[in-house]
Simulated assay, not measured.
Amino acid sequence: MDRLLRGEIPPGGNCDIKTLAREAGVDRTAFYGNRPYTHLRTEFEDRLRLLQQTGQTPDPRVAQIARLKADIDNLKERISQADQKIAELTDFRGQALARLAAQHDEIVRLREIAAGASQVIRLLPTNRSKTIGPC
Results as ranks from 00 to 15, higher is better:
D2T: 09
L5Q: 02
P11S: 09
N14C: 05
I17H: 00
T19F: 01
L20S: 00
E23P: 03
A24V: 07
D27I: 03
T29I: 07
A30C: 08
A30H: 04
A30Q: 06
N34G: 13
N34R: 08
N34M: 12
R35P: 03
R35L: 05
R35T: 04
P36F: 03
P36K: 04
Y37G: 00
Y37D: 00
H39R: 10
F44R: 00
F44L: 05
L50N: 13
L51G: 01
Q52Y: 08
Q53Y: 07
P58L: 05
D59I: 00
R61F: 00
Q64W: 08
I65L: 03
A66G: 10
A66N: 13
A70V: 09
A70G: 12
A70L: 15
I72T: 14
D73Q: 15
N74G: 11
N74H: 15
K76G: 06
K76M: 11
E77F: 13
E77L: 13
Q81F: 14
Q84V: 15
Q84S: 12
Q84T: 15
K85Y: 07
I86E: 14
E88F: 06
T90P: 03
R93Y: 10
G94Y: 07
Q95N: 14
Q95L: 14
A96Y: 09
H104E: 13
D105H: 09
E106R: 06
I107R: 05
V108K: 04
V108G: 06
V108A: 06
R111L: 14
R111D: 13
I113F: 02
